[in-house]
């Protein structure tokens, strides 16, 4: 962690911000501030250099063209790669999730990803749209995940990484597994403000970033929201 505050970096909101992606930055910042932790949020446009001193990096969703462009610019920039090598955390959703792998499918062709994790994505037979729920990997100590997915991709995990969850409703990676978890990186097809319904994932990222355990917050409203959404797919 940087010396003074938790630095949250939203990568390329001009390219990777399809639907409520700002929410994850707002929720992380709010959860940190509620615990008295100083927070700095940084939005880095795609024509700017990515800082390598951030604590938590966020990659959002995007359309095909911007997704491909984001991959090219991040590969040249290397800022995110350097930050992760020095121990930063990364939360990547939807198109941003596909970017962390070795390749993804956009605008009718395979594109090179950032190659941060051992996974690859291609196009599925149908578009996955709707509620997504699952049982997380036990090691993570998380409650069930709940979100909304809207993507045409399918993601294949390599031997070196683990899924975030086992799917109970929806499609996720392939109808069986959802997302990825490796080191301090979480990737998911729960799009947009995924942390609104999964504050425990937000706290996991904050604990990785700070190296300390997060004390509980009054999560009455998120808990009611979670219960409602999980009941709706039961």
């Amino acid at each position: 962690m940087s010396t003074e505050s938790v630095r949250i970096v939203w990568v390329y909101p001009d390219l990777l911000s399809t639907y409520g992606d700002r929410g994850n930055m707002l929720i992380l910042a709010w959860r940190a501030r509620m615990r008295g932790m100083p927070v700095e949020t940084v939005e880095v446009r795609s024509d700017e250099r990515l800082p390598d001193q951030g604590d938590i990096y966020l990659l959002g969703g995007g359309e095909d063209g911007p997704q491909a462009l984001a991959a090219q610019r991040m590969t040249l920039d290397r800022g995110l790669h350097r930050a992760l090598e020095s121990g930063a955390a990364l939360f990547a959703v939807c198109a941003g999730y596909q970017l962390v792998g070795s390749s993804f499918f956009a605008k009718g062709e395979m594109c090179a990803g950032l190659d941060l994790l051992d996974l690859s994505s291609d196009r599925g037979p149908t578009r996955a749209v709707g509620e997504l729920a699952g049982t997380p990997a036990p090691d993570l100590g998380l409650p069930p995940i709940t979100g909304f997915e809207n993507h045409g991709g399918r993601t294949h995990l390599g031997a070196g990484v683990r899924p975030l969850a086992r799917v109970t409703t929806g499609v996720g990676n392939d109808g069986a597994s959802e997302g990825v978890w490796q080191g301090k990186i979480v990737g998911t097809y729960m799009h947009g403000p995924a942390l609104a319904r999964n504050p425990a994932i937000g706290d996991l990222l904050l604990s990785w970033a700070t190296g300390s355990t997060m004390e509980p917050l009054d999560d009455a409203w998120p808990t009611r929201l979670r219960n409602e959404r999980l009941a709706a797919v039961r």
Partner: peptide, 9 residues
């Protein structure tokens, strides 16, 4: 629309 993500926009 079935998705409420826009609330954060």
């Amino acid at each position: 629309g079935l998705d409420t993500s826009w609330l954060y926009d």
